[in-house]
Design a protein around this nucleic acid. Structure first.
Lengths: 339, 339
DNA sequence: CGCGCAGACTTAACCGGGAAAGCTCATTCC
DNA sequence: GGAATGAGCTTTCCCGGTTAAGTCTGCGCG
């Protein structure tokens, strides 16, 4: 089957291709009668303007890029990214923008991908995830002048637009909740230490504990995988002053931690309270169901996509705050059993 | 920053843009000295040929499309798709093809997306997931002549290329394993009933049970979510001749089923054996760890991507068989306790 | 009646590459 | 020594849209 071009439409309508272009794009310059005829013919033969030809003159690719730099096993098991992508997609496809996805090995490779996309005019803008401290991607994108929205922050995003959530506040709320239950020894299993949002959470955790007068509020760094979460938990639970509550930076590690605790003969929440960050359906599938810090991730993605489209449209780069994660208490948290 | 074009390279090299084109594409027509000079200049100013311009003449978009038609919540929680995408991506980016992703509401919308992509020349080919019985996408793609690879089959793919795995054999192996352990009442919680691979598994299950002389080998249809998996399990376990073993069509439902069983006071594997299809790390995080049917999903995706690129390159549409899922026995299966 | 002008199109240039065809030399060959 | 070759470029056209600039009507109006 041959792909119809604008010339085919023009020929069948008995007009020039210029007229067809005006008609299809709702521009003045053709009579209503002709416009209707052209539209009917275009629909009839299933004409879609070639993206390539259009972006060659118009300079817009009608596509947005997302490069992810996480190993496949982490990406697969964490619902976060897929939910984020769903949300991004919903917003984009409503405006018939495409999403171009690419997995990369490291941040440097991501910069190279951004540069290539920009040079190829393959995308009109990009979304940036997993912000790091002194992230080299930020100045690189600023230099290119490629529209971008950072998912994260609020600091470290330079002059780029961003969508962020107040993780620090959510973490403080969680610590206060645990303290209110009577916990005094709280630990945390953190995410990848070089990610900025991990740093923000770690600082907030340390500060909140200090403010509330809690001793040894330790954060064990980890990498979001179940194995690492289990290892970190084992270490925490076999230490001298073992914690009575642990906060995990994602649900997978929390579930792994729960298993480890039960394996070691501790009851949850009797001997150990557990809080998971990222409230996916997984948290409700285990026993006891996990108290979790959750928020609407697809909405977060949609929010970011909307802002990126605005920036592409020429809007100034703003920092937009998304909803703060809220705590949903379930069966995995309770007052510590007196020892 | 202005994007360099081929004319910029030509000007700086003091040659025509035709010469630059020959030099960059490794074609004869320029001397080695000139070629080196041009390549050096192109690298220096960071030149990338515009995708739009190139595909306008060359007719290739250097992109592959994937439209997914599952609700966001299913997509997020099931590691399957993200792992598949990782594998696809690895293969594509190695050949600098882009992956264009789109979420759609239903198969009809997917056909519309394919048609649009084809008309816009946005992609050179597509991957098709979640094959259904009498899938209308197959004839639609054949009519368009858009290169495609179906992930699934082996039947129902028409003249399209496909990559498939022998789910029936894997299911038979599982049933035989459970029977060898001594189980006589085996049930199954299936996936979405209108998906072809669900049908294949359901048929294989029924046949295997009949052959082995098992009575009431019931399959309860479900939808891959934890809630539905839990509901189906509750129904099975509270029925008269309750099964001593249940096979689940994905890991999320299996984990939900495990929870339900424990909730109802049944011990796993003592009172109930559980087998999960899709062996993700989740299966090892719960207690007891789940016996699972697994295979290398990223490799499956890579396989499909490789075949799609071959079809795009003009290779005939073949049906390639991927590795069959293999059973990894863990703690959730054992001989049934005598009652 | 003829001028001006607006409306409805057409023409042609342009976007940034690829590639066929054309043009210049220097070299080879008879 | 002149024709035939061919390497090494340049010219030119093409892809399929968008859009500024032109052309051709018909009509209102002084």
């Amino acid at each position: 089957m041959k792909r119809p071009t604008i010339a085919d439409v023009a020929r069948r309508a008995g007009v020039s291709k210029g007229a067809v272009s005006y008609a299809l794009n709702g521009q003045p310059g053709v009579s209503d009668a002709t416009r209707q005829r052209i539209l009917a013919i275009a629909a009839e033969i299933g004409f879609n303007p070639s993206r390539a030809a259009r972006s060659l003159s118009g300079a817009t690719a009608d596509a947005v890029g997302l490069a992810l730099c996480r190993p496949a096993r982490t990406l697969g098991i964490e619902p976060f990214f897929m939910e984020l992508i769903s949300g991004v997609e919903a917003e984009l496809s409503a405006r018939s923008y495409a999403l171009t996805l690419q997995m990369v090995a490291d941040p440097e490779a991501e910069i190279a991908v951004h540069r290539r996309w920009w040079g190829e005019r393959r995308v009109d803008g990009v979304l940036v995830c997993d912000l790091r401290t002194d992230d080299r991607r930020v100045p690189a994108l600023e230099e290119l002048g490629l529209p971008a929205v950072v998912i994260g922050g609020p600091d470290g995003t330079g002059g780029l637009a961003s969508v962020w959530a107040d993780d620090a506040a959510a973490l403080v709320e969680t610590v206060e909740y645990l303290v209110a239950l009577g916990h005094r020894r709280i630990a945390r299993v953190g995410g990848l230490p070089d990610l900025l949002h991990t740093e923000i959470r770690t600082d907030a955790f340390a500060q909140a504990c200090r403010r509330l007068g809690l001793a040894d509020a330790v954060t064990v760094p980890s990498d979001y995988t179940g194995e690492e979460g289990a290892r970190a938990t084992r270490r925490l639970l076999s230490s001298a002053g073992r914690p009575t509550a642990v906060i995990y930076d994602n649900d997978v590690m929390a579930i792994a931690g729960l298993s480890v605790a039960q394996e070691m003969g501790l009851t949850v929440p009797g001997d150990l309270s557990i809080v998971a960050w990222d409230d996916s359906p997984l948290c409700q599938l285990v026993h006891p169901p996990l108290t979790a810090l959750g928020r609407d991730i697809p909405a977060y993605g949609a929010h970011a996509a909307r802002q990126l489209l605005a920036v592409i449209g020429g809007a100034p780069a703003g920092r937009v705050q998304d909803e703060t994660a809220h705590l949903t208490p379930r069966g995995s948290t309770a007052p510590p059993r007196a020892r």
